[in-house]
């Protein structure tokens, strides 16, 4: 059964005519050309495919577009604003938190949701928040460092404005 789905992705309205059983992951990558969202299992077991739906990290491999019509979807392509990297992206660049980079989009988005809710998390809280995102390259150390650095910078920015 094909359906026309209207999705709000990264602030843009996008439409696609897709089989209803196509997951959000597949539609983003194959129909909307947003290949920044990656996949490592398609069964909910790795966190690589994480996107934000109304600000909450969810697994796009287990979500159906029909279930989230009307919601705001954020993918890694939507993190930078006006050509400026999000502070998390900037910190990941500076601290070498992306090695192969394959887990990076999912981790960035999960961290972005964390910082929206908890602007200055403890290291343990960052660990907890990222416990659903596997990374095989980094040993997580630089990822945790980068999230902390971004939180610090965003806090300062907040204080200034």
């Amino acid at each position: 059964m094909k359906v026309r789905v209207a999705l709000n992705v990264n602030g843009e309205s996008r439409e696609a005519l897709v089989p209803v059983h196509k997951t959000l992951l597949e539609v983003l990558r194959e129909d909307l050309g947003l290949t920044g969202t990656k996949h490592g299992c398609e069964l909910g077991e790795c966190g690589t495919c994480t996107v934000l739906v109304d600000g909450e990290p969810v697994l796009s491999c287990l979500a159906l577009p029909v279930e989230i019509e009307g919601a705001h979807i954020t993918t890694v392509e939507g993190m930078a604003e006006g050509g400026r990297l999000h502070p998390l992206q900037q910190a990941f660049v500076e601290l070498g938190a992306a090695q192969c980079g394959y887990c990076t989009p999912g981790i960035l988005l999960t961290a972005m949701a964390l910082l929206a809710e908890r602007p200055s998390p403890t290291r343990e809280e960052v660990r907890e928040a990222l416990a659903g995102n596997l990374c095989r390259c980094t040993g997580y150390t630089k990822i945790l460092d980068a999230v902390e650095l971004a939180a610090l910078r965003m806090g300062r920015q907040e204080a200034r404005t």
Binding site: T35, L85, Q89, F92, G96, A98, G101, T104
Partner: peptide, 23 residues
């Protein structure tokens, strides 16, 4: 020097094209 990797930017914005990203 602790410089960023040259491909770091592409990776954090989702521009890096891995094999499965090719259409």
């Amino acid at each position: 020097r602790p410089l960023p990797k040259v491909d770091a930017w592409a990776k954090v914005v989702g521009e890096t094209k891995y094999a499965d990203d090719l259409f």
